[in-house]
Amino acid sequence: MPAFAFSEANQAEVARIRARYPADRQASAVLPLLHLAQAQHGGWLPRAALDHVADLLGMPRIRVYEVASFYDMFNTEPTGRVQVRVCTTTPCWLCGSDEVVAAARETLGIEVGETTLDGRFFLREFECLGACANAPVMWIDDDFYEDLDGPKARAILEAVKRGEQPVPGPQSGRRGSEPLGGPTTLLRTGE
């Protein structure tokens, strides 16, 4: 089994993360360390990385396997380099996430749960991403794209495919999660 070790740059980060937790509570660092390991290892966690984190924190290995398999944010099998995740939980679904999924499947040419042949994109459905006010939502690597519909999702993915970095956030022109049709409260000022 190939070995895993944190890169030199990440080792400093590991030390910084571990310093946040008391010596007898080092297991608390498991989530940030797994995120770090996953980022370093191209978007997924091989068993060597899980074992390395377990040994580093003095945890039984099965406890780290449990954590890594519990959270969908961790991939324990190889995936495409760019992670495309579409939320399909009820609010997003009501607001049209089916269209977004269809757009992603067509644009990338793969089914949900698959990786493109060139190993670049990985598409999956995701449970609630916690941005329901801006449904439907698509999460590409570290960025949320919100207020989507089919054509908007397609445009974003095409841009990513071209190597561009579309502006993340709501695609409807509003700021953050302010009401879609303009303000509805605090309309009168100065009284």
Binding site: R61, I62, E66
Partner: peptide, 19 residues
């Protein structure tokens, strides 16, 4: 001897040694 765990979540949860 901590060797068994509950991996994955919800309906997919399994009692396993993982490896």
């Amino acid at each position: 001897v901590e060797e068994l765990g509950a991996c994955a979540r919800g309906e997919h949860m399994e009692i396993t040694t993982w490896i």
